[in-house]
Amino acid sequence: MYGGLSPAEREAARRQNLLDAAIDTLIAGEKLTVRGLCARTGLTSRYFYENFSSTDELAETAYDTCVAGIAETVSLAFATPHDLPVQIERAMTALVETLEKDPRAGHILFSYRIDNPLISRKRQESTAFFARITAATAGASVQSSVDVGHAAQFVVGGVTQLLSVWLNSDETDSSELDGPAVAGLAATMINALAAQLSEAPTSSSS
């Protein structure tokens, strides 16, 4: 034991420090470098490479760490035994509340300042993930001729943009948006998709 911590606990603490430093660096719009991260954490490059093979691996781990809890929250809300509109409302409320409690995760997902190719790719993957959940839920009893997957991507893209504006409100001067309003708007958008998908296609008479 050293300083009251076991070797495993010290290693876990160093890894968490590097993850926190990576998140703060990305949110600040700065480039991830081993030297910069070591300066932020007070760790040597040796400890960096004991935990991560590259800054790309660290960025990916930081992103996955931030999005994991959000994805679980939304999935659980959709899985509750309620009518679809209620499921969607609860899912969007849970999503917004999670982002309010952990704004750093929200900025990793949506901040305009982050210009990192790997984070951009991970954001696309997350959008596809949420689109699949939306399509599977809203399209459970599809009668419409609308392509469920494409419609879900369109709606999730709109919800993503809404969340981006809300989370970056200090930069875009959108102070009128608050958490409950954002959750309500997002739920309305997805419920509108669900309603359209549940409508049987009309046939034209000859």
Rank of each mutant, 00 (worst) to 15 (best):
M1T: 13
G3F: 10
G4V: 02
L5V: 00
S6K: 14
R10I: 05
E11V: 00
E11D: 14
A12Q: 14
A13F: 06
R14Y: 06
N17T: 06
D20N: 15
A21Q: 06
A22L: 08
D24W: 00
T25H: 01
L26R: 03
I27K: 07
I27L: 10
A28S: 14
A28E: 15
A28R: 11
A28T: 04
K31I: 08
L32F: 13
L32P: 10
T33Y: 09
T33V: 03
V34N: 05
C38N: 13
R40L: 07
R40N: 10
L43E: 11
S45Q: 15
F48V: 08
Y49T: 10
F52E: 04
F52A: 08
F52L: 09
F52I: 07
S54F: 02
T55L: 07
E57V: 06
L58E: 05
L58H: 06
A59Y: 02
E60K: 06
T61K: 12
D64K: 14
D64P: 00
A68N: 10
G69Y: 09
S75D: 14
A77K: 01
A77G: 05
A79Q: 13
P81Y: 06
L84C: 08
L84D: 11
P85N: 11
E89W: 01
A94D: 13
L95H: 12
V96M: 10
E97Y: 00
K101R: 15
K101P: 00
A105F: 08
G106I: 03
G106Q: 01
H107T: 02
I108P: 05
F110Y: 15
S111W: 08
D115Q: 12
N116L: 08
L118S: 10
I119W: 04
I119T: 08
I119Q: 03
I119V: 15
S120Q: 12
S120V: 07
R123I: 09
E125K: 13
T127G: 10
F130P: 02
F130S: 07
I133F: 11
I133T: 07
T134V: 11
G139W: 02
V146S: 04
V146Y: 08
A151M: 06
A152L: 02
A152S: 13
A152D: 03
A152K: 01
V155F: 09
V155R: 03
G158W: 01
T160G: 12
T160H: 12
T160C: 04
Q161T: 12
L163H: 02
W166V: 03
N168Q: 10
N168P: 12
N168W: 09
S169I: 00
E171F: 11
E171W: 11
P180W: 05
V182D: 11
L185K: 07
A187L: 05
T188D: 14
I190G: 01
A192I: 00
L193A: 05
L197E: 02
L197Q: 03
E199P: 00
S203Q: 13
S203H: 12
S204Y: 07
S205Y: 11
S206E: 09
